[in-house]
């Protein structure tokens, strides 16, 4: 018997979908389903943008990834020991210049760095500016608290400026590295630097499957969106859906991991990660290393000369 013959009567009748009077419904804000779909798309957009930036010709893009990783680490260490705001400001200005020379959109670069500053340093820096934490000359009085005068001190501001400048310069260096190096090259660089290959393999696969699972989650949310005709807020059903999505994603990830392992074993994998990458140092890498060495030496020298 055909499926059509078994279909109930309501299934063959037409639903009144759009109101025939042409009235206009109530506008509503995007709910968590739409926001998640948009968020997932943005993650993908960001990844594509980073990949595009990393593959364009520029100063840092031309440097071997392993060389870049080592020099950036050295610069980070130098930044960590600097105790003078003026030197840190100079280093930060240098990162801006390198970003421009590497073809990074300057506003995007600045925004990406400074977006993290309030989150990572605000909690520490704001109280440290007050005379309650850092005693000293009060330059901005704020009032009294339990009989004590409270205000922002000059010493507190200097310390806060030092921390903010150090964090900004450090994040800039890391952002420079990650934005100008394709992810796979960064992993390859880690392998050449004797980071355990198994660790790098797992890291690479995790990054690769984030996008697959993101696609899976987006599909689930899109499927829900396509079946949502009435937008009445129902928090409990929303929570149940989010929990079900998380559970289903875990399930799919588990099934996928078994399949991936089979695919690896089928191609001779026996537990030893091997890599095709081998890097060759060229003249410009040597020049870059020399430039970084001079910068680090000058930074430490000036820092020492200026004293504490």
């Amino acid at each position: 018997m055909s499926t059509a013959a078994l279909a109930p009567e309501w299934l063959t009748a037409r639903e009144i979908a759009l109101c025939p009077c042409g009235c206009i419904g109530k506008r509503r804000k995007a709910n968590f389903v739409e926001k998640t779909i948009i968020g997932a798309a943005n993650v993908l957009k960001q990844a594509m943008f980073s990949a595009d930036v990393a593959s364009q010709p520029g100063l840092l893009q031309r440097i071997q990834p392993a060389v870049k990783v080592v020099t950036m680490l050295a610069l980070l260490m130098a930044t960590a020991v600097v105790r003078h705001l003026s030197i840190l400001v100079a280093l930060y200005a240098a990162t801006l210049a390198i970003a421009v020379a590497s073809g990074l959109p300057l506003w995007f670069f600045v925004k990406r760095v400074w977006l993290f500053i309030p989150i990572f340093t605000g909690v520490i820096v704001v109280p440290a500016t007050l005379n309650l934490i850092t005693p000293g000359r009060v330059v901005i009085p704020l009032g009294t608290w339990f009989g004590h005068s409270v205000g922002v001190t000059a010493q507190g501001l200097t310390s806060a400026g030092l921390i903010v400048a150090r964090v900004a310069t450090s994040i800039s260096l890391v952002v420079l590295l990650t934005l100008t190096t394709p992810w796979n090259k960064l992993l390859a660089a880690l392998r050449t630097m004797r980071v355990p290959k198994m660790f790098v393999l797992v890291l690479g696969m995790a990054y690769r499957y984030i996008f697959y699972l993101l696609e899976t989650v987006t599909d689930m949310y899109t499927a829900r969106k396509s079946r949502t005709a009435n937008h009445r807020n129902n928090t409990s059903s929303g929570r149940a859906f989010v929990a079900a999505t998380a559970g289903a994603t875990f399930g799919k990830a588990h099934a996928l991991s078994i399949e991936v392992h089979d695919a690896m074993v089928a191609r001779g994998y026996t537990g030893n990660a091997r890599s095709i990458d081998h890097f060759q140092i060229v003249k410009r890498d040597v020049v870059w290393v020399l430039a970084c060495s001079v910068t680090i030496a000058a930074t430490l020298g000036v820092n020492y000369a200026l004293g504490s």
Partner: peptide, 23 residues
């Protein structure tokens, strides 16, 4: 495999194709 997503697990196409011969 039927599911190419399970079979293509390396960060790039080049590394993916090299995986078998290297192993």
């Amino acid at each position: 495999f039927q599911n190419s997503d399970a079979q293509v697990f390396s960060p790039t196409v080049r590394e993916e194709i090299a995986f078998g011969p290297l192993n």
